[in-house]
Amino acid sequence: MTPKVERTSRITGRQCYYSVPARFIGERVRVLLRGNELMVFNKRELVARHPRLTRRGAYRDVLDHYLEILLARPGAMRVSTALAAAGPRVRSPPPMKRSGRPPARLTATRRAPER
């Protein structure tokens, strides 16, 4: 599959949504679906790896993928849909360390509403 990265920095794979680093917004990426995981490639570089979701309409967001937006727009995380999808257990990412390295990896999973 070669889906286009949406403006929300997500791709759609088998009716589920997976986050991709923000620098790939608007580009086509290659997706490899395996039994238990989904891997996203830009050319030969692995840019994202997610556990495979099984419920239609479910989301898998890695908040680290949105840190690039935070550098350009510091207030962007306040109204972020990815942060809202993470729910009340994740408030906002911790501040960057003085070394310039990003904080520890943050993940969030949202399930589709029951029908």
Rank of each mutant, 00 (worst) to 15 (best):
M1I: 06
M1W: 01
P3V: 03
P3D: 01
K4D: 04
E6H: 14
E6D: 14
R7V: 11
R10M: 07
R10H: 05
T12L: 08
G13K: 10
R14C: 12
C16F: 02
C16W: 02
C16G: 11
C16H: 01
Y17C: 01
Y18I: 00
Y18Q: 03
P21H: 11
P21A: 07
A22H: 03
A22N: 01
A22S: 13
F24V: 09
G26W: 09
G26A: 02
E27C: 08
R28K: 15
R28D: 14
R28I: 11
V29L: 03
V29Y: 02
V31K: 03
V31E: 10
L33N: 14
G35H: 11
N36P: 08
N36A: 13
M39V: 10
M39N: 04
M39W: 06
V40N: 00
V40M: 07
F41I: 03
N42Y: 14
N42H: 15
N42A: 14
K43D: 05
R44V: 03
R44G: 05
A48C: 05
A48Q: 06
A48F: 00
R49G: 00
H50K: 02
H50P: 01
P51K: 09
P51F: 10
P51N: 12
L53P: 06
L53N: 01
L53A: 01
L53D: 00
T54P: 03
T54A: 13
T54I: 10
R55Y: 10
R56F: 12
R56Q: 13
R56M: 12
R56N: 13
R56E: 03
R56H: 14
A58R: 00
A58W: 07
Y59A: 03
Y59K: 08
Y59S: 05
R60F: 02
R60I: 05
D61L: 00
V62W: 00
D64R: 01
D64G: 00
H65R: 06
H65Y: 00
L67N: 04
E68T: 10
E68L: 02
I69M: 03
I69K: 02
L71Y: 11
L71H: 07
L71G: 06
L71N: 04
A72C: 06
G75H: 15
G75D: 15
A76L: 06
R78F: 12
R78H: 13
V79T: 15
T81Y: 11
T81S: 04
T81I: 06
A82V: 08
A82C: 14
L83P: 07
L83I: 10
A84T: 01
A84K: 10
A84N: 07
A85Y: 02
A85V: 10
A86E: 06
G87N: 06
P88Y: 15
P88H: 15
P88E: 15
R91I: 15
R91P: 07
R91H: 14
P93D: 12
P95L: 04
P95S: 01
M96S: 14
R98S: 11
R98F: 11
R98A: 12
S99P: 04
G100S: 09
G100P: 10
P102S: 14
P102E: 04
P103V: 12
A104H: 11
R105Y: 07
L106V: 00
T107G: 08
T107F: 08
A108H: 02
A108K: 01
T109R: 15
T109Q: 13
R111W: 12
A112R: 01
P113W: 00
